[in-house]
Structure formats: C-alpha cells, structure tokens
Design a binder for these strands. Structure first.
Length: 951
DNA sequence: CAGTGAGCGAGCTTCCGCTTGACTT
C-alpha cells in the first residue's frame, strides 16, 4: 500500500518523530494526508525535585526520588516543564487525525519516547510504531507501509535504566553533601568519568622519571643526494654486542627498568664513552629489510570520532563541536550528529564513490564499496554515520558556509569521501648499520623509512594524533638506497639523553574516547558529561588538559571505599548486559532493581550491575543499606591525603589546605592550597613553602604604631583584616598575644580596603561614653551586625557607620527604649493573608533569615521558589501551612535524635548555624568583587548544614 | 581556616538521556 493510495481513502495521519529538522524533511517525502510533527526529545520524565512532585505523593517518604521504592519501583512521570506546549500541540493535531504513527528512533530511548507519547496523548485512533534508519523517500514510504507494534520489553529496559540512574544519583549525592560538601553530585556516568581523571593523576603522582641515553649517528653514502635518494641519514643506536639498548618503553612508571627487560641501560658517562670509542670506527650496512606498507581509510565519523578530530585539527571543544554540528544538521548540510554508527546508507556510498571518481579519478575508487562494521560494543545504531546530507554531496566550496561551520563541514566531507577510497600503499624499510668500537664492542644502529607509492585515501584525509610527537599516517621518510655490506662514513656520532614522561592527562576528546570504549555514556551526553564534572569543580582545564581537583580526590576516594561497585569501570557494561536481557524478555525489571536497591535476598540475576555493594566479598549489600548507615564513613579520613614529611593535604568545605601537626598543638601549621594547583604538583617542598609563608591575600601595609604587617583575608565568616605578629610571639600560654582582627564593613571589599580602614576597624570596640551610673557604653561590629554594648545589655545599631559616628546622647536614647526582643517585633509583616481555615489564626507573610515565609503564629512555612510575595494568595498560604503541618513533626524528631548523640555534635551544629548567618551577610558585600570571588562566597554561604569533617 | 551579642521559619542541592529554542553573558 503506498501512502498515496492511503491518502486517497481520505483521513489524516499524524507522524511523530523526535527532531524538528527530521520532521521537516520527512514531511516532504510523505506529502499531503500526513502531518509530521516532532516530540522534541523526551516529553516526560521523573520529577526533578520536590517542587515537581504531584501533590498527592508529597508526603510520601520516597517522593524526593520520584520512584516508589516501596511498591515495585513504580515511577512517577510528569510532563517536562518545557514540553507542555509541545504536548498540547501534539494533542490538538491528534484530535484531527485518524491514525497515529510513532516514528521515534529505533533504540531504547526512542522506544520509550514512543511509549510516553502513547501514554500522554491517549490516542483513540489506531496507533502504529514505524521505524527507519535512513531518511530517503523510499525508506520512509516503506516504513509507513510496514509498521510494527510497540516493543514493551524495550520500554521496560529503558525505564529500568532510568530508575537505576535516579536511585544512584539521588541516593549517593546526599552522602557527598553530608560527608564532603553540599551541592556535589554522584552518578553512574559522571563518577566514573571523574574517577578516570583522578586515576590518571594518581599515576602521574606515582610516576618517577627515568633517564636513559643513546647515540645518534649521521651516516653518509658518499653519493650526492637527490629527491629520491638523500646522501646521508640519521640512525639510532639499537644494540651493543647484540644486547638491545634500553628505550623509554623499557621503563616502568616507578622509573626503573621493567622486570625481565634484557636490555642495556646506558647512562651519560657510558654513552659518551661509547661515542668516543666509535669516533674513528668504520661502518657498513648489516641488513636492509623492506616490507610492504598498507593503510586503510578510517571509518566515517560518529559522535566521538568527530569530537576527537575537531579537537585535534580545529581546536574545538566537545560542546562547541556539537553546537556547530547542530547548526549544520538543522540547515540540511549533514546527517544527524548524535550517533554511534559508522554505517553509510546506500545512497551515501553512491554519492561518496561518485565524488571520488570525479575529484581523484577512477584509479582511487575501490572495486567494491567499503563497509564499516560497527566496532562500538554498546552501539544502538539508530542513525547513520555523520556525513554530508543528500544523495549528492556538496563540496565545501559549494555550500557557501563560512568560519567554523565551513571547517567542520569540510572535515566531515573529506572523511566521508576518503572512507570510500583505496588503501594507501608503499614500502617501509629498516636499515641496520654496524661498526666496531675501539674497545672491541660491536655497535648496531638502525633507521627506518617509509615511502608511499600510492596515496589512496591519504590524498583526501589524514587523521590527526593526540600526541604532538606522533608521526602522521602520510608522513614519508626516505632513506638512501643502500645495499647489504655497503660501507658508510659516520659524519657525527652524538650522545643523547632522554627522560621518560608521565602518562598524559586526559583532554575532553580523549576522555570521551575512553568513555565510549568502556561503553559509558551516550552520543547525546558526551559533551555534557565534561560540562558536569567541570561545573562540580571535580576537574578544571589547563589548556586542553583536564586536571582533577583535590576535591575530586576526596569524592573518588569516598566512592571507591564505600561504593566500590558503583564506580567500577565495568558497572555500566554489566548494566547494559542486564538491560539487554530485560529487553529480550529473559529477565525482569523489578527483581533486578530490588537487588540493586535492597540487596541480597532479592531474587534476580546472578551478577552484573544489580549488585551495588563493594563487590569485595560475599556480602551483596543493596544501595539503600549503603546510604543509610553513614557512620562507617569517616569524613576526615576520606578527605585526607599524606603529602610526606608529616604534612597532610585535607579537603575542607572551603577548599584544599595542607596541615602539619595536631590542631591546638604548639607546632601546628596550616595553609591554603591554591584551588587550581594540579595535584601532581603538590610536592613536599611546595607544601613546606606554603606552610612557611603567611597566607595573607592582600597586604595593606604596616601599622605605624606597632610596625606589624596588616593583611586583609577571606575567612570563614567573610572578609576581615588582621595583623601579622612577628615570629616568636607566644600564641599560647601566659604571655600569649592575640592578633587583632576585625570583619570588613559591608561597604568595603577585600580588593579596595585601605590600611586606614583596617586600623580603624581594628581599633574597635570604640568607647562611646559612660552612662549616668558610670557604666561604659561601647560600639562594635558583631555576628549580627553593628551594636552597642553596656555591660551585658546589647542593642543593635542600624548602620555600621554608626559605630564610629554615634554620640553618647544618641546611645543613651537607644538605651532609654525598652529592649526589642527579636527581629519579628522590629519588622512588620510583609502581607496579611486573612484567617487560616484550620487554626483560625491570622496568617501573614514575614521576612526571615531564609527569605519570605507565611506564618499563623504557630506554624511557619517558607515560600517556595515559584511563589512571590506580591502575588501569593491567601489560599496558597493556607496550603503551604497545611503542608508544613503534615510533615512538621517528623523533622523535629529527626533533629532531636541527632542532637542527643553527643554534646560535641550539638556545639558543632550551633557553630555552623552561626557561620551561615555571618557568611550570608558577607555575600552582599561582595557585589563589586570579581566573579570568581562571588562564586566562592556563594559556595561558602551554602556550605552550612551538617558539618562532619574538618573540625 | 577569626571571634563576637539576639532568637527563631527551612528548603534545596543531586541523576542520565532525548531533543531545541529562549534566555542572558
């Protein structure tokens, strides 16, 4: 049945694809009678946070997960906020249609999108699932004519994947908030990506360089040179008395020769002695070995290889590459850019072959089209390779593109055309040269060359290399044509020293490559994985290299020690296998999830990813158990790393620092570590240096009275000034001298504060005068802002300037007033909302420490993100209060339980509460400061909550 | 990670994968 005949029967069909650009193309192939519209990706998902959870689940203990872990992991789905309009549009279109075709991609996610569409749109007309792998008229028409049913098992597999990722992410991240720092995150993909970067850095730290020497000889044939036969060439010393000379690859990361390496390790003295001994020697060609050279073209691009090559050749990051590719795709220049397939459609192969003939001649065209088997294990192959679109490729010049779009298109075009060209062929030659040293030793040199006799695909495209020293595929090296036994003259023999290098850091491109090889992440997410670990501060960029932060060392350390199985490099691969079993109907989703979440006892699969435990014993603990009992995780331990010489690096809530000795001890030392210090650069010497110098951020000058250096610093409670006491000043004991310190006023900032400001601040408290009874009144700055103090009676001031300007008269007037209790009394309500139907009390909106909140005098509830003081209705107020009443008591008991544990903890909690208010205050003062400083301050502000480490 | 003098409301952070605009910088 052709679409035309269906149309003739009347009726209208709605076809839904994922991408709008695809919809546009397909529309043209299907003609009238078909309406093609895009879902624009997923339309439904688990709720993001509390705000998105539907009201009826709000009180449930599992609501924050969006998955009912108590009832077979039933997921709650909500239509994505940004998809509401699109869903509405689809519903309207469906209402006018007689048939619905779900034409989403044919992979796990695509099948799920189709299912969600069906669930949300609730079609009353017949529903068909249609799939195609190629966007051509024939392929589309055939797909329409041969629809199939929705594959529910595949949908199950996707849902299982989604739930696992949610449970992993939303259960493990809070562990990091408690044990390391708030706002951190963990996830199946990002945590492994971070771990890879950290492990590489550990290798670099453990690495010790080895030195080795060899000789380079310049040999001459005595013939004059021409284009095909250079008269002289260089060769490296390869063996002495038949024993191979050690090279870089013979050394292990410890800087010593690898075990069993039967090689001669030359040091400088030996190498120079040998060079001298060879100075007068005569040389001859010992052997000439020639082998045919053959190189096949590279496969067409998929997402990862495109990102790698764009990085190597165009210097583009993964994100930029994808953005430019997206534009090319939308404007019809290339096929879809998020793919794991290297397959070219028949039309593409024909187009490429036509272009090969046209541009390079028939001699470059293989007899048969080349087929590239997907080497990506985990590939879902819903799309083609990335290639120029259409059945006739436009040359870059024909596109009219400019800038990055032009360059990226050209790269894709060249790679595609080259993939259908002949192999490059030639010869590779190895020449060995022998000479006898004056001490009788036999020295053998060797040189190898490569000549390309037929360039084949290399004419069109040469792949770049990650290592700048690596030889590119098309690089030729010609050697003179020499024969065995031929005598050669040594023009020069020199000794060369080399040092082994530590393994290179990952770049965006090489990390993505590594992830793909390990089957972690998907084409649509590779670029954003890098974005996530950068955002979290787990890695930072130094040039193109990805450097792990000390913070990531602490996080990875915690995860490895307590969630080993979850950051295992094979976790995702095992999960994929299990999901495939679910998709094939050989396994069930619920038992699998139960085993992952609740652990042993849950019937299910024999192994694989469902075991969340450490995997280092028989105990198969579930995720739930691991995140419930946090007592086993010693926060201080996981964030401490010995540097050597008694110095320990610690990752605190405010960043990394080095420390020596016990806190409060006489010899205790501590110093900040720059946040952008690469971990492999933290040597004992550097740590000593840090500990030796005062960590004053801004030196303001010297106090003319005492001569002490005055510095401005950023502290736990915000910016402050302090004096540096001369060395030897007793800090403890009877004669202890404390450095004077003072917080900056809100109107001041670290980079603008002057020495005069500092001295004035440090002169506080200021004596305002004495009251009639002779009691002294002072003015000063404190935790809650400026205030007056008279004995134990304190009164807040309105502005910091008053500390210096207030007169005794004004102060006495303030004390004449009755003491104001609390802020509530001082501040009138922002808004009145009428009488609460439950409590019968008047409800008002007030401004508090945590922002605006509604209260009936008994229950308080903070306004949510979406609420606004101006627009909030009385009904909304009552609703918030009712919600709060519903879950209020539960929280209180939880708090009490923690407080009971130890008195020490209680004080710690108090301390953190204090920190928070102070920190909050300082954020405001920073508005003029640099952006990074402001960011830091925000981080500090949020760094409240439970502090269990770093005390 | 400096050290202070009240009293009183927490809520939110976070995952991976599928898609584009609509925003601001």
């Amino acid at each position: 049945m052709s679409p035309t005949s269906e149309t003739a029967q009347g009726g209208r069909r709605l076809v839904i694809v994922e991408s709008p650009a695809k919809a546009k193309t397909i529309k043209g192939y299907l003609g009238p009678g078909y309406v093609v519209e895009a879902s624009v990706g997923h339309i439904r998902d688990l709720p993001n946070g509390a705000a998105e959870v539907p009201a009826k689940y709000k009180g449930e203990s599992w609501a924050r997960l969006g998955v009912n872990v108590e009832a077979d992991f039933q997921p709650i789905y909500v239509v994505n906020h940004d998809k509401k309009d699109q869903v509405k549009k689809l519903k309207e279109l469906l209402a006018e249609s007689d048939e619905l075709f779900l034409a989403t991609d044919e992979d796990r996610e695509g099948e799920a999108i189709a299912w969600h569409l069906q669930e949300v749109l609730k079609p009353k007309v017949p529903v068909r699932r249609m799939v195609f792998h190629e966007i051509t008229k024939d392929a589309i028409r055939e797909a329409v004519a041969n629809p199939r049913e929705l594959n529910q098992k595949l949908v199950d597999a996707q849902e299982t994947r989604r739930i696992l990722d949610r449970l992993y992410g939303y259960e493990v991240s809070p562990v990091l908030w408690k044990k390391v720092m708030p706002r951190l995150s963990a996830g199946r993909v990002q945590s492994v990506a971070t771990r890879l970067v950290v492990e590489r850095e550990r290798e670099r730290i453990a690495f010790s360089s080895a030195e080795y020497w060899d000789l380079t000889g310049t040999f001459s044939t005595g013939r004059s040179s021409d284009a095909s036969d250079p008269g002289s060439f260089t060769a490296r010393l390869s063996s002495v008395d038949g024993r191979r000379v050690a090279q870089g690859r013979d050394f292990g990361p410890n800087g010593r020769l690898k075990e069993g390496a039967q090689v001669l390790h030359l040091d400088e003295a030996n190498a120079r002695a040998l060079a001298d001994a060879l100075a007068q020697s005569s040389f001859s060609v010992r052997s000439v070995e020639s082998k045919p050279y053959r190189r096949s073209p590279y496969a067409p691009f998929r997402t990862t290889t495109l990102q790698q090559e764009a990085s190597r050749k165009l210097g583009m990051g993964a994100k930029a590459t994808m953005q430019v590719a997206q534009k090319l795709y939308e404007n019809g220049f290339i096929t879809y850019m998020r793919t794991d397939s290297t397959t070219l459609s028949e039309t593409a192969i024909a187009a490429a072959r036509a272009q090969v003939t046209q541009l390079y001649g028939a001699g470059y065209l293989p007899d048969k089209p080349r087929v590239y088997a997907g080497k990506v294990k985990n590939a879902q192959e819903a799309h083609e390779a990335i290639r120029p679109s259409g059945d006739r490729f436009r040359t870059p010049a024909e596109t009219g593109l400019t800038g990055e779009q032009f360059r990226l298109y050209e790269l894709i075009w060249k790679r595609t055309v080259a993939s259908q060209m002949k192999d490059a062929t030639g010869d590779s030659v190895t020449v060995r040269i022998a000479g006898r040293a004056s001490d009788g030793r036999d020295a053998e040199f060797s040189a190898s060359g490569k000549t390309i006799t037929f360039h084949g695909f290399l004419k069109a495209y040469v792949e770049g290399a990650d290592d700048p020293n690596a030889e590119l595929d098309d690089r030729e090296r010609r050697l003179p044509q020499v024969a065995e036994g031929e005598a050669l003259t040594a023009e020069e023999i020199s000794a060369d020293g080399h040092a082994t290098k530590p393994p290179a850091r990952y770049t965006e491109a090489t990390l993505v490559k590594e992830l793909e090889e390990r089957e972690i992440g998907r084409p649509s997410t590779y670029a954003s994985i890098i974005g996530t670990i950068l955002d979290r501060g787990y890695v930072f960029k130094k040039g193109t290299a990805l450097v792990p932060s000390f913070l990531s060392f602490a996080v990875v350390n915690l995860l490895e020690k307590h969630f080993g199985r979850l950051v295992d490099y094979d976790f995702t691969a095992a999960m994929e296998e299990d999901l495939d079993r679910i998709a094939r109907g050989e396994a069930q989703a619920v038992p699998w999830l139960r085993r992952f979440y609740f652990g042993e006892g849950a019937e299910g699969l024999a192994g694989g990813a469902a075991d969340a435990g450490n995997g280092d014993g028989d105990h198969l603990g579930g995720l739930k158990e691991l995140v419930t009992d946090l007592g086993a995780i010693d926060a201080r331990e996981v964030s401490s790393f010995p540097v050597g010489s008694g110095i320990v690096l610690r990752v605190g809530r405010y960043g990394p620092y080095v420390e020596r000795g016990e806190k409060d001890a006489e010899d205790h030392q501590r110093a900040d570590v720059p946040e952008d210090l690469a971990p492999d650069e933290l040597t004992v010497e550097y740590a000593e240096e840090l500990l030796a110098k005062p960590s004053g951020d801004f030196e303001l000058g010297h106090d003319p009275r005492t001569g002490h250096l005055i510095v401005a610093k950023d502290g736990r409670y915000g910016p402050y000034v302090t004096e540096v006491l001369p060395e030897g000043t007793p800090k403890t004991g009877k004669n202890a001298v404390k450095a004077r310190t003072a917080s900056l006023f809100k109107s001041m900032s670290l980079d603008t504060v002057t020495l005069d400001d500092a001295l004035r601040l440090m002169s506080l408290p200021r004596v305002v005068g004495t009251d009639p009874e002779g009691v002294e009144i002072t003015a000063q700055n404190g935790r809650y802002g400026p205030y007056l103090k008279k004995g134990t009676d304190s009164r807040s001031l309105e502005s910091e300037d008053q500390i210096f300007s207030i007169t005794l008269e004004e102060a006495l007037a303030i004390y004449a007033q009755p003491k104001q209790r609390g802020r509530a009394a001082a501040k009138p309500p922002l808004k009145e909302l009428g009488t609460d139907p439950v409590s019968g009390r008047p409800v008002v909106v007030k401004d508090g420490r945590f922002g605006p909140y509604v209260t009936d005098g008994e229950t308080n509830a903070t306004l949510r993100r979406d609420d606004d003081v101006e627009t909030v209705t009385p009904e909304r107020g009552y609703e918030l209060l009712a919600e709060k009443r519903a879950k209020g008591p539960a929280k209180k008991t939880a708090k009490k339980a923690t407080a009971k544990k130890t008195t020490a903890k209680k004080t710690a909690a108090k301390k953190t509460a204090a920190k928070k208010t102070a920190a909050k205050k300082t954020t405001a003062t920073k508005t003029t400061a640099a952006k990074t400083a402001a960011k830091k301050a925000t981080a500090k502000k949020t760094a409240a909550a439970v502090k269990t480490n770093d005390e």
